[in-house]
């Protein structure tokens, strides 16, 4: 992951955070990863339509800046817990799309050897302790990982991603309270995409902003434009610094939007086409970031085309890898339920 870097020169001090903090190479890589997330999910959706992937999936298309902005300031050994809408978090934390596709295809080369699928995608080696099928299920687990970090003095910061729906679960409140009283190195990241399945936050949540909940647990509550990479990265950077300094947790509310439905069964009856179109046309996180990069002379159209091409190839290779990978043996059906004793 990124290594913090001082401002390049004094005249750049008015630039947004990311352009002061990260090198042009790093920023181009962020763009590439945002494309990788989007194309991965489009590839997964396409494979699902073709019947190559069964079950269901929850796509985060439109939320790429949030995943990348939060993970960019993290170290490789920092940890995350993720959600049912977790493909972006997984890629942002460093996962290989080959093994993610393989997991979705139910193959042994997948991150979970075909046992977890989309909803339990994980990459423990890169610090991703797993997506979660239970809303808010990962939040207390992240607090536990942060407790390990503090007790074992590993210096790790733990990020707990969750959606707006999770903020009305008891686990959210219990976890925030414990993280605060024990001053644990954890960052709570609420990706508020406006809807818990079909129910808007306005209808489900008594406070205007989910970040307002932070006051109840004596921690900073920060609201960011989740579609603005730099703004998200700045908040995550500050929260990680605070966590590493032993000052405790932060709640970041990243306001964003999912273009696709909740899952594959969604008929989009709870929101208008105009609302969706407005976000896609005017607030797309990749388009916004790309425009900024061009404006600051970090990339040109040719460079962008090269990024897109290389991502396209990586996705095609990933799908091919998944197709060619072996399926699990039925004779291994009950493996991994318990730890095999040698």
């Amino acid at each position: 992951m990124a290594i913090a870097r001082k401002a390049i020169s004094p005249e750049q001090t008015n630039l947004p955070f990311a352009y002061r903090q990260y090198s042009p190479d790093q920023l181009r890589d962020v763009l590439r990863k945002m494309y990788l997330i989007r194309r991965f999910e489009e590839g997964a959706e396409d494979s699902y339509m073709r019947g190559l992937i069964h079950g269901t999936m929850h796509l985060s298309i439109g939320q790429e800046a949030s995943a990348m902005g939060i993970c960019m300031p993290l170290h490789e050994d920092d940890q995350i817990t993720s959600t049912h809408r977790g493909h972006g978090h997984c890629i942002a934390k460093g996962a290989d799309v080959k093994r993610m596709f393989a997991e979705f295809f139910g193959k042994t080369t997948g991150y979970c050897k075909g046992r977890g699928g989309s909803m339990h995608i994980a990459d423990v080696a890169k610090g991703n302790l797993g997506a979660n099928g239970i809303v808010a299920g990962g939040i207390p687990i992240a607090v536990g990982a942060a407790l390990s970090s503090k007790r074992m003095k590993t210096g790790k910061v733990v990020v707990s991603f969750f959606g707006d729906g999770a903020n009305n679960e008891g686990a959210f409140h219990e976890a925030l309270n414990m993280a605060s009283i024990w001053k644990l190195p954890v960052i709570f990241v609420c990706e508020n995409n406006g809807y818990g399945m079909s129910t808007s936050t306005a209808r489900s949540t008594a406070v205007k902003n989910i970040a307002d909940r932070a006051a109840a647990y004596s921690m900073p509550g920060v609201i960011v434009d989740g579609n603005n990479f730099s703004e998200v990265a700045e908040a995550s950077h500050a929260a990680a610094e605070r966590a590493r300094a032993g000052e405790g947790p932060t709640l970041i509310e990243s306001k964003t939007y999912r273009y696709r439905g909740h899952s594959k069964s969604d008929r989009n009856r709870y929101r208008t086409k105009e609302e969706i179109e407005d976000w896609i046309t005017n607030r797309d996180p990749i388009l916004l970031f790309e425009t900024e990069l061009k404006e600051f002379g970090i990339i040109d159209d040719k460079g962008i085309e090269a990024v897109r091409e290389s991502v396209k190839q990586e996705i095609a290779d990933g799908i091919e890898f998944a197709k060619q990978s072996p399926a699990p043996e039925l004779s291994d059906l009950d493996r991994y339920v318990y730890t095999e004793v040698a």
């Binding site: 299920g137 536990g144 990982a145």
Partner: peptide
């Protein structure tokens, strides 16, 4: 949940 998280991360 905190206990689960601590257990999977080495405690």
């Amino acid at each position: 949940g905190v206990a689960v998280g601590a257990a999977v991360t080495g405690m």
